[in-house]
Design a protein around this nucleic acid. Sequence first.
RNA 1: CGCGGGGUAGAGCAGUUGGUAGCUCGUCGGGCUCAUAACCCGGAGGUCGUUGGUUCAAGUCCUUCCCCCGCAA
Length: 308
Amino acid sequence: MRIALLATPDFALPTLDMLFRAGHELRVFTQPDKPAGRQGELTPPAVKVAAGKYGIPVRQFEKIRSPEGVAALKEFAPELMVTAAFGQLLSRENLDIPKHGCINVHASLLPKYRGAAPIQWAIINGERVTGVTTMQTELGLDTGDILLMREVEIGPDETAGELFARLSALGAEVLKETIERLQNGALTRTKQDDALATKCGMIKKEHGHIDFSAGRQRVHDLVRGMNPWPCAYAMLDGEPVKIWKTKWTDEPSAGEPGKCVLADAKRGLFVDAGDGLLEILEIQFPGAKRMDAKTALLGRPLLGKTFR
RNA sequence: CGCGGGGUAGAGCAGUUGGUAGCUCGUCGGGCUCAUAACCCGGAGGUCGUUGGUUCAAGUCCUUCCCCCGCAA
């Protein structure tokens, strides 16, 4: 089938790979190169790089809704359009180009977690289960009819990065099956129950500020959900300290949330999280590299200090 | 040249107004103990990122370059 893939970051790489191997006639539409890194070098989207390796033609648009974008799509004349973490809204004009319309791969169990960062929010909110949904793209934000859905359990210590990797692979699988059913005429549509819908926005750095009075589980969930980006943090002596990894303990609270109740290079770093102690396994101080807490403790006396 | 922080023993950090380097852990040897993430004694280990300079003397001041980290994008 002739398919236009609209995608940008590495979430879509397994999908790109799958479509390529399945032998579809592909063209990739993605975002323009953008400044990234310390030097602000112009960096191409991950999908563009990968497509280049496969020899798949790539077009880049600031707005696929623009006349230029629409014209480029029409020129390719796809039978199907696929979006996966594209990062742009589509117009009616875009959607009407392929006869099969557009299928979106979304990393949540719709109608829950419509929006930008479903994987991270699912973890931050302490969800035990999430998944991937393929849906018929409509104008609303992730509101179209559900085509296929697959669930996965979220591990108690799983990070957003780890779940991201699993769901991006799963996304490719689900899309593969969705396309096969489409070709066999075996695809069914299910309307979303808007009453059950929840929305999530983009993750901002401020969301990572840890409130140690929130309890062990909520802090742990936040740390997992913000890993690897942008990483949860707390203020110590007026400076932001990143908390990369934590571990639940059964030790009782000392009644002073944020306080380093135990800070020993051999035993580890234990912080009061309101309803008990949470062990900090990996930490990163300003200007320093990320390291395990016991190592960091060798040169920094944290006992008695308080994270705010 | 976007802004800022940093490169000191295997690891993490200190090193004040410039005067040939300390701490914690690890490591090696010995001791104590029923035992230990415990304790005691002793030892090894550093051309202080790199280049050039100032000085009687530089980890500590100035300079070149390299690398790491954060912010901003």
